[in-house]
Each structure stands twice: as C-alpha cells, then as structure tokens.
Amino acid sequence: MTVARLTGITYYPVKGCAGTELSEAELTSTGLRHDRTYAIADEKGDLRWQWGDPGLALITPESAEGELTLRAPGREPVRADSADVHDWLTDVLGAPSTLVRSPDGNSGRLHLVSRASLDALNHRIAERGGTALPMNRFRPNLVVDGWDAPHTEDGAARLTIAGTELAFTEDTIRCAITMVDQRTGRRSGPEPLRTLADYRRADGGGVAFGAYFEVRRAGRVAVGDEVVVGSRTSPAAASRSA
C-alpha cells in the first residue's frame, strides 16, 4: 500500500496575496503560525479579495526574523511596518489600499487538498479539452500525496502528521478565486468551477474541493512526513460524488 506523505506546506501572511512555501512549519492551536495575519482593505475598510482584485496574487509577502516584506513585479520591496506601505499597495493595485490586521486571522483552520483530488479534477478537465490546473489555484496550507482515492480528505475525521493530530471540520466550498491565475494575477475562468459543478456539488450549495481541519495536537511538521488517517467519517462523506 502506498504511504501518504505531506508534500507541500504553504502559509499566506497577507490574506489574498501569494503564499510562502515552507519545508517545515509549526502547527499551533490556531493553525499555521502567522497564516493570514494581515489583509488589505479598500478606502471603505472592506477587505480586498482576489476576484475583485486579481493583482493581489502578484504581491509576495516574505517574513524573515520577525519582519514582513512585500514584493511585486517591477516594484522595490517595502516593509510592512513602513510608513510607505499603504502608498506602495495603492500603486500596485491601482486603487486606495491599506495594510491592516486581519480581523479573523486564519480562523484556526488548516486547508488541506490531496494530489489525488487534483489529478482527478484535471483528468475531467482534460476530457473536455481544457488545460490542467496547478495546485496553487486552490491555495491550500497542506498538500498530501499518496492516497489512492481522490477526496480522501473529505472522509478523514482524524489525521496524524508526525506528532500532530488534525480533526476534520468541513468541506471547502470553492469560490471565484479559483479562476484567478496565480502566476499572472489575471482572471482565467471558467475552470475549475465549471467542471467541479458536474460532480462536486455540496448539499448546502456551491461546489466542494478540499477540506478544513483544526489542530487538536500541536507540533512541528515537515515535507516528507507520513500522513495517517486515524479515523473516518461516514462512508457517504468519504465517497461523495468522487
């Protein structure tokens, strides 16, 4: 039997902006440390999101020694605590923008997607003549490879990774952000929502892809760690429209 392993760890210091890939990370009771600590607000104080501002995908936050720096193509980097950061964001996004503390942070959740789920989706997209999508379209915190069945994450009530334990909370209901090309910062629909609508409709509406977990036992994880399904939810949840 294939051993499932953690093959990706990504956190998003600024909500809606590009993620930072890690080789190892600390999982705390509130999720990945520093995940979605900041957000970007418009002139009304509403938080910007990628479908409305796809250029957010081109802003890359980098954290080092407790300092957060923002980078974007063709711009000089700026520190998050600089007096110039708001003008910098306004220039990059082309509209008044302010860096703020995210009101909800990461909500104590980890977003997990398996490679098997993405492979199954891309197979369906290819059958209708479309192009395969990269994992970053779904902006997961954790990526697992090695599960034979797609959407195993849906039915995993408990997961253990190294010394940590995660508990399933809910399916991830996908929105229009999945149609933003994370490389170019441009809208690029209709996939994946068009194809997901064929076979991943959620009972409460929308389409589901990936799952949210909460940290029940904190600790450190690293790329390459084995991922073990400790217990499962109902068979219906595990096999729903997969």
Rank of each mutant, 00 (worst) to 15 (best):
T30Q: 15
E67T: 12
A41S: 14
W88A: 07
P235R: 12
E191S: 12
T131H: 12
A120S: 14
A222G: 13
L70D: 02
I40S: 03
T37N: 04
R33I: 00
V207M: 06
E153R: 05
G66K: 09
L58D: 01
G163W: 03
V227Q: 04
R186F: 01
L47K: 05
E65I: 00
N106D: 13
D148R: 15
V227C: 04
D154K: 01
L112H: 01
L56K: 04
A80W: 10
S82K: 13
D148F: 07
E214P: 00
I177K: 08
P103S: 12
T30C: 06
W51E: 08
A208Y: 07
E26H: 14
R183H: 11
P13D: 07
L56Y: 01
T2P: 09
H151V: 11
R240T: 11
A238Q: 09
S29K: 15
V180S: 05
E153A: 04
V85P: 03
R194I: 00
G31W: 01
R240G: 03
R139G: 02
P77L: 09
P73S: 11
Y12E: 05
P77K: 13
L112Y: 01
F213S: 08
T60E: 13
S239Y: 15
P150F: 02
S107I: 12
V78F: 08
G210P: 06
V143C: 07
C175Y: 11
